[in-house]
Each structure stands twice: as structure tokens, then as C-alpha cells.
Amino acid sequence: MWPYLLKRILATIPVVLVVMVIVFLMLRLTPGDPAANIAGDAATSEDIAELRVKLGLEEPLPVQFAIYAKNLLKGDFGESFYYKRPVMSMVADGIEPTLSLALFTIVIACLIAVPLGTLAAFKQGSWVDRLIMAFSVIGFSVPVFVIGYVLIYFLAVKLEWFPVQGYQRIGDGVAGWAYRLILPATALSVIFIALIARMTRTSVLEVLNEDYIRTARAKGLPQSKVLLKHALRNAAVPIVTVIGIAIAILISGVVVTESVFVIPGLGLLTLDAIQGRDYPTVQALILLFSLVYIIVNLLIDVAYTLLDPRIRY
């Protein structure tokens, strides 16, 4: 197990390197000039050229990359072109809201999806099953922002149960933090409920046909124990895989939700940074997102060994 973990952690180094190069090049090869953006509409071409030199954009690409890599090794992600703040501190500010939203969403999604999927599998072919699967198709098809605005309209504007938008830091009170997250997390969770419920159903259905389920029934166990104790744990590996993927998508995919609900997280930051061609910030964010993917994948693989004694590394 430990040698395996070490190997996996070492393997992240080349991945990170490749991501660094690709992001670096992509930003500079796509149209749009950060200097022009910062200088504004009234700037002359001399102003812009001066700004480019100041931002270090006039150096040849390899030199720019070398400087970037050297600073990165020292743990310095550079300074935002736009806000003139260290990128590190901006990202640090954005992590809490994003992480809160992602975890809140995934907890809601799992709590709803796993029981629904299991129920659908158990009642395969019945109206319960069809209803759950119909919901899951709708959940897949409706975009997050539509669900978001519908929820805001009914629950916030009409019924006034929840605030329309905004975020409260966890340090300023857990209750307020959770209260303000419920609406965005619900909106965001719909598609993941659909995804996880579907996977749970398929996986449990497959397991229900296994011989050991028949053995469990032949022991005289009640249906509930057969389902929860024998079926669900065996069905867990694919479900956990999907949940892991969902977490990764969530953290990097909160852009839309954060803009609908105006949550000052990484999503909003990314949106601003890309629009402003804020190279250092975009580079740092994408590097961070790719690290999240890698870590989540590693955690999934570790979770496998806990769920299934046959899997050993």
C-alpha cells in the first residue's frame, strides 16, 4: 500500500509539468492581450507597449516560462495583473466558499441519490423505478443555471425562505453559512443526484443477480438486510468512482453556480481571470484544479481498498 501511494504521488509530478506547459502556452496562443485589457479603452498603443514590458510579456516565451517555473518552485505563483495582489492569497480567499459549496452539494447529492438508486433497483420495473429514472433524465437535461433561477424565483423571491444570493464565511457562524449554501448546493446537486442515482441503480441491479445475494436470502435474512448489508457494499465501488468524479467536476465546475448565486469562490475568480487575461491567476487556478483531480483520484483508489478486501495494491 505505502509503496503504491509513494509511486502515485511521484507520478503526479510529470502530470503537473505537462499541465503547466499546456496552460502556459494556451493562454499565450489564444487571442487577447492582458495589457490592452488592463490599460482600458482610452489607452494609446505606447501605453500598452509599456505595460507589456512591465508585465514581462515582451520576453521570449521560453524565458517567460523559465521565470514562471523558477518562481513556482519557490512557491510563488506570481502577482495578479489585475488586482496587483499575490495570486496565492486570492486563491486562498476563494477556496473556502468553493470547497464549502462543493462538499455541501456532494453530501446532499449522496444522501438523496444513493437511497433513491437502491430503491429503484429493488423495485425494478415498478412505477417507483420509472418515476426515479424519469427524474434522473430531467436532472441530466436541465442546465444548472435554469434550476438555479427557478429555485431563486420560487424559494427566495416568492416564498422568501432563503436569501437570493451571497455567501457567509464559516467563521462568521455555521448556521448562517449552511443556511446560505442550501439553495446553491441544491441547484448544483440536481445533476449529480441524477448521475449517482443512475449509477447506484445499475450497480445494485447487477449485484442483486449475484449468487451471494441468493445465499443471503437462503439464510433467512430480511429483505432490508439483504439490500443494505450485502448488496449495497458490493455495489459501492462503481458508486464511489462516480462520486469521486462528481467531486472533481464540482470543484472545477462551480463557475456557473457561483455567478448565479454571487458566491465569491474560485469559480468567480476563474471567470474574472480568464476574461481579463490575467495569466498568473489562470495558471495558478488550472494547476490547482488539476491537482484536485489527481488527489480525488488517489482518494478513490484508496477507498476501493477499504470497500473491497480483494483490491490490494
Binding site: 449475484e210 449468487d211 451471494y212 441468493r214 445465499t215 443471503a216 436470502r217 437462503a218 439464510k219 433467512g220 435474512l221 430480511p222 450485502h230 457494499r233 458490493n234 470497500l307 473491497d308 478486501p309 480483494r310
Partner: peptide, 25 residues
Amino acid sequence: RLRELRCTRMGMIFQEPMTALNPVM
């Protein structure tokens, strides 16, 4: 009632011992 009888009055063993036991227990 069937559940009560299983394993107490009538027990069963199956063809595939490889798959008839729960692999994670």
C-alpha cells in the same frame, strides 16, 4: 414464515462456492 424456516429447518448449498459467498464479508 419462509424466512424463519430457512437455515433453521431447511438449509441450502449452491453450485459455485466461488460466487456464493459475499466477497466483502
